[in-house]
């Protein structure tokens, strides 16, 4: 299993959000994606899931082209995701959110994320931390080949962040391709052996997190040219 992004470009109203970006992630590999605001991280997830169409390039999963497929077909091909702010179905129950119209049993997944006691509540009643865990359970429940996480620990305190990281370590099947967009470098270094840095829609770094702080272009992107030198 291999997810490859090949020379993908995305434009919004003439402004380039991603410019000929290429990335390949192998089965079992966990890629962290970092970068300043507006770097194109969420756009990357959107273009892989089919919510946004690229103007150029292709996205393939194990040789099958995903580009141009509607989002639901991409999902059925085995790509699951979470959103920067959880997008739950607030008027459905917690268990219904995990099933999300699929023929599966919600209970094991709810147990996994510790929400089993709340299965009968409406999703609107959850705390932000619980909402994150529920969205994660929904993404995991389809047993996806590819799991795309958009700031899974965004807006959470240190304890909850640790909970989510531990949960991901424990719950994600070993062969799953995982891509994590995250601001907190600590989470990335803990979960991922490899990290890509995006800046203004281009990939400026791809390597182990330990090499990140020594990279000149990364420092420039984060700190500005003068201070980096």
């Amino acid at each position: 299993m291999r997810l490859s992004v090949e020379g993908v470009s995305v434009r919004f109203a003439g402004i380039s959000a991603l410019s000929s970006l290429s990335l390949a992630v192998a089965a079992g590999e966990r890629l962290g994606v970092v970068g300043p605001n507006g770097a194109g991280k969420t756009t990357l997830l959107n273009v892989v899931t089919g919510l946004v169409r690229p103007v150029a390039g292709a996205i393939r999963l194990d040789g099958h082209t995903l580009t141009g497929l509607p989002p639901d077909a991409v999902a059925r091909a085995g790509v699951a995701r979470t959103f920067q702010t959880p997008r739950l179905f607030s008027r459905l129950t917690v268990a219904q959110n995990v099933r999300a119209g699929r023929p599966l049993d919600a209970e094991p997944w709810l147990r996994l994320v510790g929400l089993l006691p709340r299965r009968g509540d409406l999703a609107a009643a959850l705390t932000p931390g619980e909402a994150r865990r529920l969205e994660l359970a929904r993404a995991l429940a389809g047993s996806p080949h590819v799991l795309l996480l958009d700031e899974p620990c965004g807006g959470l305190g240190p304890t909850e962040t640790e909970d989510i990281a531990a949960l991901l370590d424990r719950a994600v099947a070993p062969a799953t391709i995982m891509v994590v967009v995250e601001h907190k470098l600590r989470v990335i270094s803990r979960l991922c052996a490899r990290v890509a840095v995006l800046h203004l829609g281009e990939k400026i770094f791809d390597g182990p997190p330990t090499a990140l702080r020594a990279d000149r272009r990364v420092l420039e992107a984060y700190l500005g040219k003068s201070r980096a030198s």
């Binding site: 509607p70 059925r76 959103f83 997008r87 459905l92 999300a100 119209g101 929904r138």
Partner: peptide, 18 residues
């Protein structure tokens, strides 16, 4: 359930494969 999911957030419904 699918109907209500679409009513609430069509994109999210699509990204779970509905």
């Amino acid at each position: 359930e699918a109907l209500r999911m679409i009513g609430e957030d069509e994109e999210a419904a699509a990204t779970v494969g509905l």
